[in-house]
Every structure is written in structure tokens, then in C-alpha cells.
């Protein structure tokens, strides 16, 4: 064990992490409808070690499926902060990117990554299960290469995120 350098240990850890990704899906909008086919026998995301989980403590991925308004943002932040490092966020569909069809709504958050660090977006309305799976594969690659460092960014730029959150949530 002691022969392993920290770098190598991290590599091994990342290798393990990418093979076992547990996901909590925060279903705010219509996007969740695409998840059942992703999980079940047609696409079967468990092939990649992905599995849906229920509490933030157990999960590695926060999947925000759909638009985020002010009310749900507070919950998303709570859930995100309760997750254990390393943790990743995926914005699902166009709404978390720019508000989607709700772009001019008074209560909808336009850009999720102003409030929590999003590692990956899946564009589309709705993204097909194939797109979802591709996204997960991409995330795995990112983890493997150490690029999925949203949680580190969040810690580094905590003041920035908190400021943005405060502005919206009051």
C-alpha cells in the first residue's frame, strides 16, 4: 500500500468511482419521464454500474431533470450540500441550461450553474435515453481523467455561489 503514490491511489479511486455511480434524480419537471426507459430493460443503465438511489447521502450524481424555480432551488442546494464528496451534478434537458420554454418566467432559474457547479449538461427537450447514457459515459470519462471536479469548484468559489443563491432566494 505504501508504495502507491497519492496520484496512483487517486487514479485507482477514480477508476472505482466511475464504475459505481449512484444517482439521485431531482425530478422538477417533465424530464423524469425519460428516466424509466433508461433504467429498465431496453437501455438498462445498470450495465455501467449506474443505479438510482434515494437519499443524497448515498448518491454520487445529482440529476436535475427539468426546470428549476426559486422554490425548488433551495431544495436542490440542500440536497447538493448533503451529498458526500466526490459528487457530480448533471443538468438534464434545456431548462437547467437557459430556462428552456420558461425562459421568461418570473420564478424560473435560467442558469443552474450560477448556483451549483454543474459538471455536465444534457441538451435537448427532451434528451432521449441514448443521450442520457452518452452523458453518463462522458461523465465516467471525465471522472477517470479527473475533470469532473464540480465539487472542488463549489468549495473554491463558495462565496460566488452563495452570493448568487442569496440574490435569488433572499
Amino acid at each position: 500500500m505504501d508504495r502507491l503514490t497519492e496520484e496512483q491511489a487517486k487514479t485507482i479511486a477514480n477508476m472505482l468511482r466511475k464504475r459505481s455511480l449512484w444517482m439521485i434524480h431531482y425530478c422538477t419537471g417533465c424530464g423524469a419521464i425519460e428516466l424509466p426507459p433508461t433504467m429498465t430493460s431496453r437501455y438498462d443503465m445498470s450495465r455501467f454500474g449506474l443505479a438510482p438511489f434515494v437519499t443524497p447521502r448515498q448518491s454520487d450524481i445529482l440529476l436535475v431533470t427539468g426546470y428549476v424555480n426559486i422554490k425548488t432551488l433551495r431544495r436542490i442546494i440542500t440536497v447538493y450540500e448533503q451529498m458526500l464528496d466526490p459528487k457530480y451534478v448533471i443538468g438534464f434537458g434545456s431548462c437547467p441550461i437557459n430556462g428552456g420554454v420558461y425562459w421568461d418566467s418570473y420564478s424560473v432559474i435560467k442558469r443552474l450553474d450560477r448556483y451549483i457547479p454543474v459538471d455536465l449538461y444534457i441538451a435537448g427537450c427532451m434528451p432521449r435515453p441514448e443521450a442520457v447514457i452518452t452523458a453518463f459515459r462522458t461523465l465516467m470519462d471525465m471522472i477517470d481523467q479527473g475533470k469532473a471536479d464540480g465539487y472542488k469548484r463549489y468549495k473554491r468559489n463558495l462565496a460566488y455561489y452563495k452570493e448568487n443563491q442569496r440574490k435569488v432566494l433572499g
Partner: peptide
């Protein structure tokens, strides 16, 4: 108080 409550604070 930092506890799982389905997102509730």
C-alpha cells in the same frame, strides 16, 4: 438539523 428531509430544510 443537517438531515435528509427530501430536500426540505
Amino acid at each position: 438539523y443537517d438531515n435528509y428531509a427530501a430536500g426540505q430544510v
